[in-house]
């Protein structure tokens, strides 16, 4: 019984110190030293917050570069998606993350890829099937992947240029500008932040 009360008291004190003091202290410190990152690395456009530079967004406008397939639609939705339908369900189910968790052998995966592939070939004339980088048509793990591979960006350049009127050379330059190499030249993969790239395009389109 003595052991039980010791266990209880120790549990409570650890709960307070590890569960409250520690995260609150870390929040306080972080807000002071890294206020932008601690708040979600929000990026603004024309003075208004339009997203987080770390989270991908769903782009449908052909003038913009498109990101990867997302099982949660990047938590991007329209107002009407929150209105319940007759079953009480909403098209947008609330903030989420993750993927559809399709197994490589799942026919649904093949169907989705084939469908997206056909659509991509249609919207991006001149692109050959074999040239399409796999990341563009596969769903990301988080559903919020802010990046695409540089190849995936380049393959979209002709289509974006056609829709936006920005020259392919200019777009090439923008893509290169937003291509981030490996960390220390070793870690990770080169990538392009779609939101930041599109923000710059939006600036040009103004």
């Amino acid at each position: 019984m003595k052991t039980f009360f010791r266990a209880l008291r120790l549990s409570l004190i650890l709960l307070v110190s590890c569960g409250l003091l520690y995260p609150l202290a870390m929040t306080g410190v972080s807000q002071v030293i890294f206020p932008r990152q601690a708040g979600g690395s929000i990026v603004g456009y024309q003075g208004k917050p339009v997203g987080s530079e770390l989270l991908g967004q769903k782009f449908t406008d052909m003038r913009f570069f498109h990101g990867r397939v997302s099982a949660v639609n990047y938590n991007t939705y329209a107002k009407e998606d929150t209105v319940p339908d007759k079953d009480g369900k909403t098209a947008y189910g609330g903030v989420a993350s993750g993927s559809a968790n399709l197994a490589p052998s799942n026919p649904a995966l093949m169907e989705r890829v084939q469908q997206d592939l056909a659509e991509f070939l249609q919207t991006h004339p001149g692109v050959k099937k074999a040239e399409i980088p796999a990341d563009l048509l596969t769903s990301s793990g988080s559903g919020l992947d802010p990046h695409i591979s540089p190849e995936a960006a380049r393959i979209q350049i002709p289509a974006v240029s056609r829709a936006s009127g920005i020259s392919t050379a200019k777009l090439e330059k923008l893509v290169s500008k937003h291509t981030k190499g490996r960390y220390l030249g070793i870690f990770g993969e080169p990538n392009v932040n779609v939101l930041k790239l599109n923000l710059e395009i939006a600036e040009l389109l103004k």
């Binding site: 208004k48 997203g51 913009f64 990047y74 938590n75 991007t76 939705y77 329209a78 107002k79 939006a202």
Partner: peptide, 11 residues
């Protein structure tokens, strides 16, 4: 937030 495409995104 409201995205540059005018849609909403929850962060």
């Amino acid at each position: 937030v409201t995205t540059i495409e005018g849609k909403l995104q929850d962060i």
